[in-house]
Simulated scan of single mutants.
Amino acid sequence: MTFQSFLAAAPTRLDPLQLFLDADIVVQAVIVGLVIASIWSWAIIVSFWLRMAGVKRRANSFEADFMEAEDPHSLLGEKNRRTNASARVAAAGIAELRASSDKGRVRDKAGAAQRVSMAMEGQVAEEADNLSARLNFLATTGSVAPFVGLFGTVWGIMNSFFQIGAQENSSLAVVAPGISEALFATAIGLFAAIPAVIAYNRFSARVNAFEARLHRFADRVSGQIGRELEGG
């Protein structure tokens, strides 16, 4: 096949599906893996966005009610503790205060206040860990996917050189299909990695901001408990 005939027979637009079907089995496996990783990354992105919106909304409502309530303990029911991060932080402090009490009296007030603060800080760290747990997959996809795609590219180019040797022909008609398939693997790798990296950076910042917010709430609760201890 001459160069002119190859150009005449070449498709007029890029067909990703045809590139996949014509690719070597190894390149196909790489592309399938990257597509699955991309789909899973988008599922995490959407679910985390919805989850974070709900977490912040519930925290806003609870914190406002808790700081204004005459009996804040009444807001620490099972439902709130199950669905609300701020409620769990406050409940950790109240539980430690009760554990430090002897028949309703606190003998070591300074020590009790410190233990209450530490209990809430520990709960804040646990809440942040729970929120960021699934983000690790986004970080992994963002860092690994380009290299997986590059592996498919290298394999496809190696296959193109093999075809050159097998056919003893180095014309563009022999080399171009394999190189196209190879570069398609790199494109899919970037397609999977770029959204994952952007989402991971964005969501990590949101988790950090929410963790800082819980720290501030814990400080307010700790201060309120400290005043109650001093008044008692």
Rank of each mutant, 00 (worst) to 15 (best):
S171V: 02
A53M: 08
N136Q: 06
R82V: 01
V27D: 04
D15P: 04
A139L: 03
V27K: 01
R105V: 09
G226V: 04
L50E: 08
G223L: 00
N130C: 11
F210H: 15
M1H: 12
T186D: 02
M52R: 11
R115I: 00
P146F: 09
S47L: 08
K109T: 15
V32F: 08
L19Y: 05
R105Y: 07
H73P: 02
P72R: 10
S160V: 05
L131C: 13
A87T: 04
I188P: 05
G122S: 11
A139E: 08
E78F: 02
V106D: 02
T140W: 01
W42E: 08
L150M: 12
R202T: 13
R216Q: 06
A128M: 03
R81Y: 04
F137V: 12
A176D: 09
L183I: 13
L135P: 13
I188T: 14
R57Q: 11
Q224F: 08
Q224T: 12
L50P: 07
F6P: 00
S101W: 04
A112L: 01
N169E: 00
L75H: 10
G223P: 02
I25P: 14
P146N: 08
G54M: 03
V106A: 00
V32Y: 05
N60P: 10
P11F: 15
F137G: 11
A192M: 02
A91L: 01
G231L: 04
D102T: 09
I39P: 05
F48V: 07
F161Y: 07
S101P: 01
L21T: 12
D129C: 06
A192V: 00
V89D: 10
V175Y: 07
S47Y: 11
T12R: 13
G178D: 03
L19E: 06
D71S: 13
I164Y: 09
V175P: 03
V144L: 09
I225P: 05
L7W: 15
A119C: 06
G104P: 00
S132H: 12
I94K: 00
E211F: 03
Q114W: 00
L229Q: 06
G149A: 09
S47C: 05
L50K: 14
N208D: 13
Q167N: 13
S204G: 14
G54D: 11
A173L: 02
R206W: 03
V154K: 08
A113R: 01
S100Y: 02
E230W: 02
A119M: 00
L75C: 11
V46L: 12
A85Y: 11
A29T: 08
Y200K: 05
V175W: 08
A92R: 01
W49G: 14
V26D: 06
A91P: 05
A8N: 11
V116D: 05
N84A: 10
I45A: 15
F3I: 04
V116Q: 04
D65R: 15
A113N: 11
R206E: 02
G165E: 03
